[in-house]
Design a binder for these strands. Structure first.
Lengths: 365, 365
DNA sequence: TTCTAGATTTAGACCCATCCAAAAAGATGC
DNA sequence: GCATCTTTTTGGATGGGTCTAAATCTAGAA
């Protein structure tokens, strides 16, 4: 059974078995073999089995490159993030990978390092590789026209976390406005009146949304004190910013941070100032990364579900690839405040209307 | 200049301009255009300029799929990691991306979640996509024969962090044995005599190497106390394991942890037991992830340079692709002990013989 | 038995670049 | 001006699938 290959596929090494070889070996045409490979219902059961046996026996390997050349799809997707070293993106990429894997897709990953130039280069490369679509977390300073360019290229693009250009576009993210609202509500309920916001710099939609949520929520509760401290979104930025902030008069009694990294930095900064996070100043982060649970004190954080965002983004892309002219969709997941020790209350979870895993809140534009 | 396309490339949309169109527009043959694209020195300067102008004018997009079908390389690489959500891998992937990007390569990324089945599926898919090579961090329980299978497939494979099968193979990693030696040396110098090792479970080479380093170093210093606590390599595992450990008599005065996550968990566990990390028990981690710097106390850690490992692995893969039959190489980077507060000494850096960025220590097999 | 709708199968063009051998053009020497 | 080298350019085959339209086969109807 393994020795008869000498006659049917003479002197070819295993990696160059083609449809033609399978066809010859099983006594049908190349076209039929192709249909079998693509699981076409047209093929008669007997033929199918016969061909499948030949495929096994000869150790045939499907050549997706060749298929893509004539067909229209490559089953590949380009994914661009701006900081893969950030654990948030690690989780998100895991979600993307899981969703794509189910559909037989694979993804090219690139790290733009928030450089529009690197991002541009990668996108061009993706175009040359004929990816079926793009998942884009736009780098800081990406020109809004990029979206139009991609449209001209006929390359479906789902924006993730940040968005540029004008709607309608496909977009998957977390509801950052709502997240900050939840944080403010919680702090107000605990009696805080002077709540600051820490971190965020540029003109990302994701930053703007947080700031918008902050301003809105303060207004909603009729609070006068408003202090928005711009800055980077890293640990060390959090450390520096909190020091500046705590020297002011009056001091805030609580800070909400752009992300968990800033929050960790802020907590460390408080300790260095001889203050106790959660007691002298409440701290709330955003993202709910894994280390939030086991911090000291454990960090209260607005969970933004990166894995789920990744899954949704991938699903959205697959949907758009299947129907390029369908209505653009926005999947904005509801975040969820995860209460722990860093804001002084006991470690419980705020009862939420949404189920344990935040369900997607859909809206199409 | 943009309107004359009507004659030279009638009613084609921009994305289907081919070599033929360029050839027609610039009055040369398809072959010549192809040579220009590949920057062949054969082409006369005048011709080259003429063709390049046509390429620009028509908005030609190189079709790598078609090129790969006839040519031999796809300029793609498959990358398999087992936990992309772990910040260590995020940094490593960033390093891979940077090194590949320079050479015009792009990478398919997959997350095996330490499942050999998922890993297998992905590798088969990569084969179908005709990647030029594979970077593999083998999933736990990967059969050693996998390496032979890849060899049969003629798919160059560089193992990363863990290795399976018998040498010689291409491999990029950190010298885990040496890392534990450094940690033990440091603790012994500080006067510790009872040093435990925390975490690690399965039969990975990476775990074995740590354990080997631990045993060797104890023997070298003539220490009797030896306590190797197996367990997962997560924060919560660290938390649990340290609690067990500190209930024993005699207690260790220092623990070295499989990675930083375990170390963070261990420090938290110590605090919960009312003990002070760095005072009642020294803690040393492995990896030196970003949050080590800003922990409380800051964590002493064996820096394993994930970004550099990623770069080296990618370079190794490119080298193997260029010369498939060349001698296999191992790039094992020297780690470096980053001393901070968690082991009681002041926050300084151990003078090392290696330069600031650990240089690769090369050896070929 | 002949005819026809439906089920299967197939030939051959096609996707778009690369490769190779051979032709064409240019340069040089006598 | 002619033969000989170089330097450039090129036609046509090739890689391995998919697509379309047409050919073939089947079973039930007439």
């Amino acid at each position: 059974m393994t020795q008869d290959t000498a006659r049917t596929s003479p002197r070819r090494d295993s990696s160059s078995i083609t449809l033609q070889d399978i066809a010859a070996h099983s006594g049908v045409s190349r076209s039929t073999v192709s249909l079998v490979l693509r699981e076409s219902p047209l093929v008669a059961e007997r033929t199918r089995l016969k061909v499948q046996r030949a495929i096994k026996e000869l150790g045939y390997v499907y050549n997706r490159g060749a298929a893509a050349l004539r067909g229209s799809r490559t089953s590949t997707l380009g994914v661009v993030v701006y900081d893969i070293a950030n654990p948030f993106f690690g989780a998100m990429v895991a979600g993307i990978d899981a969703a794509l894997n189910k559909e037989g897709y694979v993804s090219f990953l690139a790290n733009s390092e928030d450089s529009p130039e690197r991002q541009q280069r990668f996108l061009e490369r993706m175009r040359e590789h004929s990816v079926d679509g793009i998942l884009l977390c736009p780098a800081e300073g990406t020109p809004p026209s990029l979206i139009d360019t991609l449209a001209e290229w006929q390359l479906p693009c789902v924006q993730v976390l940040r968005h540029i250009g004008a709607p309608p576009f496909d977009y998957a993210s977390s509801d950052f406005v709502l997240g900050v609202h939840q944080a403010v509500d919680h702090l107000v309920a605990l009696g805080h009146r002077r709540i600051a916001f820490l971190g965020g710099n540029a003109e990302h939609s994701a930053t703007q949304e947080r700031w918008q949520g902050y301003t809105e929520a303060l207004a909603h509760h009729g609070l006068d004190y408003q202090r928005l401290v711009r800055g980077n979104v890293t640990r060390s930025a959090g450390l520096e910013l909190i020091e500046t902030l705590m020297r002011e008069t009056p001091r805030p009694t609580a800070v909400i941070c752009h992300n968990d990294l800033v929050a960790f930095g802020a907590m460390l900064g408080l300790k260095r100032l001889g203050l106790t996070p959660g007691q002298d100043c409440a701290v709330i982060g955003t993202d709910d990364v894994e280390e939030a649970t086991l911090g000291d004190p454990a960090l209260t954080s607005v969970a933004t579900h990166p894995y789920a965002i990744g899954e949704e983004a991938a699903r959205l892309a697959l949907r758009r690839i299947a129907d390029p002219d369908g209505a653009r969709e926005q999947v904005v997941l509801a975040p969820r405040l995860q209460v722990r020790e860093s804001c002084g209350s006991s470690s419980t979870e705020i009862p939420a209307t949404s189920p344990a895993t935040a369900g997607p809140s859909l809206s199409s534009a």
